[in-house]
Design a protein around this nucleic acid. Structure first.
Lengths: 301, 301
DNA sequence: GTTTATTACTGGACTCAGTCCACCATTTCT
DNA sequence: AGAAATGGTGGACTGAGTCCAGTAATAAAC
């Protein structure tokens, strides 16, 4: 065991060097790693506020204020005063900002591609699966998360976090809040344990996410209330939640599942696409906030 | 391929966080990561000079000067004026300095151990082997390795690195150093290119390892001077060196090969056993250091 | 054997990233 | 309504690291 720990520490030193070399791609852009992380986060979740970024990226509030100010004067992002709370400013990259992020992302992607040019596709595949194993085990070691059935005590969590996270991240209106209140409560009230389910993701004993399967008819299920706390993102929990829900659908002989989401939720949309979902209809919904493009995704087993 | 690159980059972001958390073990020590890297390097290679550190760790000369000065006034290292060149100062950690490094190393080790406590030994084993795979493939991608015949210019490298590495890693005495000096020089002097060979492993053009085949008689060869720099370990180069040496033995009609090693060299011993070597005799040798159990391994074709 | 160039190192002045603290405006709690 | 909490901001500061201009010692050139 001792020698394995030494091996892991040796890998850490090795990988520190690798990451150091890779970070040099940002050099010369005039923006620090932190600046880029901020822009990336805003790009992934438009209508973030300074607050959410401070927590997600673990940056000093004062420093964040300065970064945002600088990026704003550089024309890379714009502040949109929140209608719900005058202290808040929703943040959104300008087209210039998006373009810069895209350019950096492409550059970093190319750099990695170039690095891997001397490895065969099969070799890269083994590397990727090794990385996934490490990520999974380390997430487990660091955070201890699990997915469990919900209890009625979780309803409050699901409602309040849904409201807060969506409001903060996507600047949705009170109409959306009321909608969440109503639908979650209705779901819980008419809950049919034979045909429906709700799962809660826990990280170190605290709920950090949710997903539900609601029965539409004998053949058709709907995924609902899919939520993941920012701090729990990017370690495969979202995927596991969706997997658990889809497994439930298959086991219960549903032949199709659909879900409603909107175009800003990029990570979630990527996950749906990966699972085989396809967009079957879209429509603008202005009552939940400005410029919301609702989408209905469906998957047929 | 594109999505695999995305996966790798996702792993990089994840692992950046992990490493960030781990680095916090240094916090509160009053020394920066750079300070520690400097001390570690001096600890591994005593009598380094500022010059060598500047190149090895890629630190600004002026900054290095300041770091050294600070560590000196803190009583962690001492400057020993070089007798050959008055501009040079040889650097050596004081016992306080060594103790500090040891303490930090132990702390870092414990931290990792604690982190892994919720994983089974088997799980850790899979993590370690995944890491080794990544290290091997990335090393291949980042650095270019090759194994080549030695030239007489390599003799100095083989002697000096043998001394330094064995002294650092196994606390061997001056007697061992002298022995290396004598045997390597003797080998080079009486070198018979028809029946003997020495291979050098190179990483990005710099020697990182060696192995030699010495002729004992028509039938019997001896493996000698097997060495691999720490940074080049764990990526299959040692195996390649031994393979090259054994191939040479077979091609030159030797019927047996033997080698002398000692019981502390666990990784090397594992490699020998894998190749079919067996221990044919052991004896304690106290003149090279404390508690050295010498072993003679042999392989018959 | 003196001049010139190079090397190893050093100190001053500076930049840049990030932190700490005090403060304001707004919102929430009671 | 008043107290407490929240989101955000600017001033002053620290600490890491860089740039440049030296100095002393050594090596090379003529």
């Amino acid at each position: 065991m001792e020698s394995m720990i030494a091996d892991i520490r040796s890998f850490n030193r090795f990988y520190t060097n690798i990451l150091g070399l890779l970070d040099q791609s940002l050099l010369g852009s005039g923006y620090s790693l932190t600046d880029v992380r901020v822009m990336l986060e805003i790009s992934l979740q438009p209508f973030s506020t300074a607050k959410t970024l401070i927590h997600q990226l673990n940056i000093d509030p004062s420093y964040m204020s300065r970064i945002i100010k600088r990026l704003e004067t550089d024309g890379l992002l714009e502040k949109i005063p929140s209608e719900l709370d005058n202290r808040l400013n929703n943040l959104k990259l300008t087209t210039t900002g998006e373009a810069l992020i895209q350019k950096m992302d492409a550059k970093s992607h190319d750099q990695m591609k170039k690095l891997l040019r001397c490895l065969s596709e099969d070799e890269v595949r083994t590397v990727v699966s090794s990385m996934q194993l490490i990520k999974a085990k380390f997430s487990e070691a660091f955070y201890q998360f699990k997915i469990r059935d919900f209890t009625f005590d979780d309803i409050d969590y699901v409602i309040s976090r849904h409201k807060i996270l969506y409001q903060n991240e996507y600047r949705l209106t009170q109409v959306f809040s009321d909608h969440v209140d109503a639908t979650v409560n209705a779901f819980a009230e008419h809950f049919n344990p034979e045909r429906e389910c709700m799962f809660i993701a826990e990280m170190s004993g605290k709920p950090v996410g949710s997903i539900a399967v609601a029965s539409m008819d004998d053949q058709t299920a709907q995924l609902r209330f899919f939520l993941l706390e920012p701090k729990a993102r990017g370690i495969g929990i979202g995927k596991k939640l969706v997997d658990a829900a889809l497994l439930f659908c298959i086991e219960n002989n549903y032949t199709s599942v659909f879900l409603d989401t909107f175009s800003d939720l990029k990570t979630a949309r990527y996950l749906y696409a990966q699972k085989g979902f396809e967009i079957i209809s879209t429509h603008a919904n202005e009552s939940w906030g400005k410029n919301i493009l609702e989408e209905r995704w469906a998957l047929y087993f």
